[in-house]
C-alpha cells in the first residue's frame, strides 16, 4: 500500500500539482494523501461535441473534492464518467483513462455494474423509487446479494440513522417515499447509497433543489461521511465548496483550469479565470 502511495505521489507531482506541499494547507500536520481516483488525459465527446478536454486529475481517498464551474462546463459529464453512467448516453465516447485503485474503469475487463457498486451516486433531483422508504434501501441491498431479513432490516435502520433521517421517519418506514419532503427524499437517497457501502460517493449538486436547513443537514452529513468515503461533489454554491471540501477543481468549457486545495483555490488562486469565477465576476 505504501508503495502505491509513493507511486501516486510522484504521478501527481509529474502533473505539476504541488498542492500537497502547499504552505497554506495545515502546515505542520501534513499527511500524505492516497490517490483513490486518477483521471488521465480524459476526453469526452457527445457525438462530435468535444465536451471534456484532456482532464488530468487525482482524487484523494477519504477527502471531499468539489467540482465547480459555470453551467455547461462539463461537471456532471465528468462525475458521471466516474461511475460509468454516461454509458447510457447514446452516441457518446470517452478517451483516456480513469483509474480507481489503479484499475482502469474503461478497461476491457471492467464491469460497469461492479463499478457502480463501488462508486455510489446522489443526483441533483432527489430520485427515490416509488416504493416504501424501507424498500428503497432494501432494493439496493438485495441486488447486492443480501437475503437475510434481519440483516436487511438492520442495514436499513443503520443507514437511515447515518443519513440523519431515522428519527424523523421511524414510524413511516412502510410509507411511500414520494410522500417525503424534498430534503428528506435526498437524505433517503444518501441512505440508499451508503447502505451498500460503496467506496466513493458522487454528489451532483445534491442541494440544488433544497431549502437552507435541508442543505445544512446534508453538508453536515457529507463531512461525517468523509471519515469513511471518498467524496466528489459538484456544486454551484461557493460557500458550500468552501465549507465541505478539501480540494477544489475549477472547470471551464470542458477544461480543468485549476485544481488545488480548497483553501488555496479560494484564498490565492493562480489563474485569473478561477479568481473571476469564485469572486462572482462571471459564470
Amino acid at each position: 500500500m505504501i508503495k502505491l502511495d509513493a507511486k501516486n505521489r510522484t504521478n501527481s507531482a509529474d502533473m505539476g500539482y504541488t498542492e500537497i506541499k502547499d504552505p497554506l494547507n495545515k502546515v505542520g500536520n501534513f499527511l500524505p494523501e492516497k490517490t483513490k481516483i486518477k483521471a488521465g488525459n480524459l476526453n469526452f465527446y457527445y457525438g462530435k461535441t468535444h465536451t471534456l478536454k484532456d482532464i488530468n486529475l487525482n482524487i484523494y481517498e477519504k477527502k471531499v473534492t468539489a467540482i465547480i464551474g459555470p453551467s455547461g462546463c462539463g461537471k456532471s459529464t465528468f462525475i458521471r464518467l466516474l461511475n460509468r453512467m454516461n454509458d447510457f448516453v447514446a452516441d457518446s465516447r470517452a478517451e483516456g483513462e480513469i483509474l480507481i485503485d489503479e484499475n482502469n474503469i474503461f478497461g476491457k475487463t471492467a464491469d460497469p455494474v461492479e463499478i457502480r457498486k463501488r462508486v455510489g451516486m446522489v443526483f441533483q433531483k432527489p430520485n427515490p423509487f416509488p416504493k416504501s422508504i424501507f424498500d428503497n434501501i432494501a432494493y439496493g441491498l438485495e441486488i447486492n446479494g443480501a437475503k437475510d431479513r434481519f440483516y436487511i432490516e438492520e442495514k436499513v435502520v443503520n443507514s437511515l440513522k447515518k443519513s440523519a433521517l431515522f428519527e424523523e421517519i421511524r414510524h413511516r418506514l412502510r410509507d411511500n417515499a414520494l410522500g417525503l419532503s424534498g430534503g428528506q427524499q435526498q437524505r433517503l437517497c444518501i441512505a440508499r447509497c451508503i447502505a451498500i457501502e460503496p467506496e466513493i460517493i458522487l454528489f451532483d449538486e445534491p442541494c440544488a433543489s433544497l431549502d437552507p436547513i435541508s442543505t445544512a443537514k446534508i453538508e453536515e452529513l457529507i463531512l461525517e461521511l468523509k471519515k469513511d468515503y471518498t467524496i466528489v461533489i459538484v456544486t454551484h454554491n461557493m460557500q458550500q465548496a468552501l465549507r465541505v471540501s478539501d480540494y477544489t477543481a475549477f472547470f471551464l468549457m470542458g477544461e480543468l483550469i485549476e485544481y488545488n486545495t480548497t483553501k488555496k483555490i479560494f484564498e490565492n488562486p493562480s489563474d485569473r479565470r478561477t479568481e473571476d469565477y469564485i469572486t462572482g465576476r462571471f459564470g
Binding site: R116, N144, R192, I196
Partner: peptide, 8 residues
C-alpha cells in the same frame, strides 16, 4: 438512473 447507480 437511480437503479443503475446502485449497481443494478
Amino acid at each position: 438512473e437511480a437503479s443503475y447507480a446502485l449497481g443494478a
